[in-house]
Design a protein around this nucleic acid. Structure first.
Lengths: 280, 280
DNA sequence: CGGGCGTTTGAAGGATGTCAATGATAGTGG
DNA sequence: CCACTATCATTGACATCCTTCAAACGCCCG
């Protein structure tokens, strides 16, 4: 547990920042050695394509640092981001020629890659690994369906509030209890407006308008286009319109921290009337 | 293959209409016997709840006949259908207390049910079954992401066309080459307008308007609110706005028939201008 | 026959997309 | 170090798709 009592030198994988959270970290020593032998680190600059939408990917892997976007594109160019992949998340599609999902680096990123067929063979030889893989995919499916609810039922203001709440929760889960030391909650959005729009099924202009309206209402403070201070968490929850949001793991994270609950902040005295309409 | 040369009497499972397509059908004899012992048939009337959204389901299973809807509900009652489950599709969530997805019978339905923990134990004892389960869940994930593209990027007319095309493809895959004997293509929609609206992220009124507009344009003929004749398949494809639709398995069907391709019907001489706008 | 449900149709309004122009920012090369 | 440029974000005006509300219609079934 403690690095100071560790006698044997750590392997490369054991030094990996996402090793504890990723699938490979749960493997037994022999399997970990296989991972160590088969995997390799690759880096991508923001905007670079990791796996094209139509191509058959030769490899799968884990995000070590940075953010990837999993996206689908229509014939006329319209795009939908179907998942944001953060450190320790898996990317790539096993057991299929192609899944029509492209993977691109949303920020500069470091990936731990492994040949797809080698990984499939590993899964076949190690049922316990395949079991954990199944659990991870089931969680991704839950997340995808949660996002279908967001896209199909929620207004754009609700979607934006939901998205920001999910980011809040993720930050807290990752240990950073507050974004800044003095109790204020600073929220860094890891992706551009364009990616936000493609993720939330809207446009950059609409996002800009609504975020600024939220700032006018003192729900947020805009420090930088991608950095906000959350001023009124309770009204953000109201605005999202769904109670379970602080509970669910919508960004396809690991199931371990699924039961984390935000502290029950008291509701604002003056509840904003229906955020389904921007007028409020 | 042929029932007439079958000497041993068929087991209950072997007589099951979805046995060939479902997970259980691919199991070895010993595992099939376990399925036979553990599973039981339950019937539900249209509208009945199979698994509540918040409750912890005690069982999982397969659809034998009828259609189920997998849906999520927001606090204020808005609903999104996140999947339509047809015969041979699995329902229920293994390895989780709850997935916040409710299952209801969209039509009268017959289900083959199995205790969830018993099934989980079965998966643990039979890695090859768990492997097939993983493949099925991966296909469901692909389908969910395809639907995210539909909800996030497509206009309502495009969504409706896509939905109808998927039903067409499903019908053809299931062997019914034509809905009627004389070469006309009769399409039965297995769900109500309300369910269509909840599935496509829109309202019954909008669906009605667009379907009737399609009838006016001689793309469809409305035989009955839930029965259409497809008059112009090519323009239906145009209207959907995505080429890969006839290829992808969007309704979470089995992967076996994934490569089926519709015959390349010739395009209409007079292409409708942009179906993104209803005016056309 | 009547009630209820599902569907259709109409009118009106609003939320959000589109187009266009400006402002802000960061990266680049001289 | 600074202009230059490309990209991103913002803001405004406008158009329109779609929802909402309302009422009528058809149909099934008791």
């Amino acid at each position: 547990m403690n690095a100071f009592v560790q006698m044997k030198p750590l392997t490369t994988c054991e030094r990996c920042s996402v090793h504890q959270r990723a699938l490979c970290g749960a493997a037994d020593p022999q399997l970990q050695a296989e991972f160590e032998r088969l995997s390799h680190i690759r880096t991508f600059r923001a905007g670079e394509t990791v796996v094209g939408e139509t191509e058959e990917a030769g490899f799968v892997g884990n995000v070590v640092s940075g953010v990837l976007r999993a996206q689908k594109t229509m014939a006329d160019g319209r795009q939908q981001i179907v998942g944001l992949l953060m450190p320790s998340d898996m990317f790539g599609r096993v057991f299929a020629r192609t899944s029509q999902v492209g993977i691109e680096a949303a920020t500069d990123a470091t990936l731990c890659c492994i040949d797809r067929h080698a990984y499939e063979a590993l899964l076949a030889r190690h049922p316990e690994l395949e079991h954990r893989m199944l659990l991870a995919v089931l969680d991704e499916l839950d997340a995808a369906r949660d996002w279908m609810l967001l896209l199909g039922c929620q207004s754009v203001p609700e979607r934006i509030a939901s998205f920001l709440l999910i980011l809040c929760r993720r930050m807290r889960n990752r240990g950073c209890r507050h974004g800044s030391a003095d109790g204020r909650f600073i929220l860094g959005v890891p992706i551009s407006r364009r990616d936000m729009a493609a993720y939330l099924g809207t446009t950059v202009e609409t996002i800009s308008r609504i975020v600024h309206e939220m700032a006018r209402r003192r729900i947020l403070r805009i420090i930088h286009p991608q950095t906000f201070e959350v001023l009124d968490h309770a009204r953000l929850v109201d605005m999202a319109g769904r109670e379970e949001l602080d509970l669910s793991e919508t960004l396809a994270g690991p199931p371990a921290d699924r039961l984390y609950r935000l502290p029950g902040a008291s509701r604002a005295a003056q509840p904003e009337t229906g955020w389904r309409k921007l007028a409020g």
